[in-house]
């Protein structure tokens, strides 16, 4: 992405950000609260429109004028900082919803189960594997509001992964999750990257977990990228230290 800005009223939440995320990498985005990380993710995924200037490219295609669902179809998935789940649907239904190319999602096909049931069972198998990986299989029949905050995070991650994304934007995937599970989530992320080559761009406050798995880290403060580099070098960056501790 190049020269991307997003202002709310007089506040420039994202201020002329230019960055690129390498295909197949796990890239971190860190910064103090209010630094614009989630807004940046909203702009990349299309939930928020960027201000006029700048461009976002994904997989060689310009995507900043596309609607969020079209960006997802191209392979750009995301999770939200506050889990956005479908509260009237079970965990299994939430997970299965995200799968692409469902024949039964067409109203002309849906009334004829024989035309989509085969695919439905295949998707259920995939959903089951996905849920096993994240240890949420037992939650399959529960509604999201019958699960804990940490479990909701996992369900959301499971949903995002069901869409076969080429790149996943994960906004604080381990917030509210037990420490052991936080490690497991990152192991799953690393596993997914190795197996499928998925690219991950992750906002995370648990730096000790994040730094074990990321290739590159961007640091953000007051809407700008203030540092970029390997985890071991970025922690020594004076601008980042100042941003966190105040200067």
């Amino acid at each position: 992405m190049e020269n991307i800005s997003k202002a709310f009223g007089g506040v420039r939440a994202v201020d002329e950000v230019t960055l690129s995320v390498k295909r197949g990498s796990i890239t971190g985005l860190i910064g103090p609260n209010g630094s614009g990380k989630s807004t940046l993710f909203n702009v990349i995924s299309g939930v928020e429109k960027k201000d006029s200037a700048g461009a976002i490219e994904f997989d060689g295609k310009r995507i900043d004028r596309l609607s969020p669902h079209k960006r997802f179809e191209l392979g750009l998935g995301r999770s939200f900082q506050t889990p956005r789940l479908f509260m009237g649907m079970t965990v299994l239904e939430n997970t299965m919803l995200a799968a692409k190319g469902q024949k039964g999602e067409r109203p002309s096909v849906a009334p004829f189960p024989s035309r989509w049931e085969g695919q439905e069972i295949e998707l259920a198998k995939r959903a089951q594997d996905q849920m096993k990986l994240l240890e949420i299989e037992q939650l399959y029949g529960k509604l999201p509001n019958e699960t804990s905050g940490g479990q909701m995070k996992l369900v959301q991650l499971s949903n995002a992964m069901m869409g076969d994304p080429k790149m996943l934007l994960l906004d604080e995937p381990t917030a509210g999750v037990a420490p052991r599970l936080a490690q497991d989530i990152f192991k799953s992320i690393a596993h997914q990257r190795e197996q499928l080559g998925t690219t991950f761009f992750i906002v995370e406050h648990r730096l000790e977990v994040l730094f074990k798995h990321v290739d590159t880290v961007f640091a953000m403060h007051q809407g700008k990228i203030i540092a970029e580099g390997k985890p071991e070098s970025i922690v020594k960056d004076q601008k980042l230290i100042d941003a966190y501790l105040g200067s």
């Binding site: 956005r84 509260m87 239904e93 299965m96 067409r106 995002a160």
Partner: peptide, 23 residues
């Protein structure tokens, strides 16, 4: 059917539904 899931997703949270590729 999957269409029922799609309808309910739009009902429950349209932003999340859009972010999961639903028009």
């Amino acid at each position: 059917s999957p269409y029922g899931r799609l309808l309910k997703s739009v009902r429950d949270d349209k932003i999340a539904a859009e972010s999961l590729g639903k028009d």
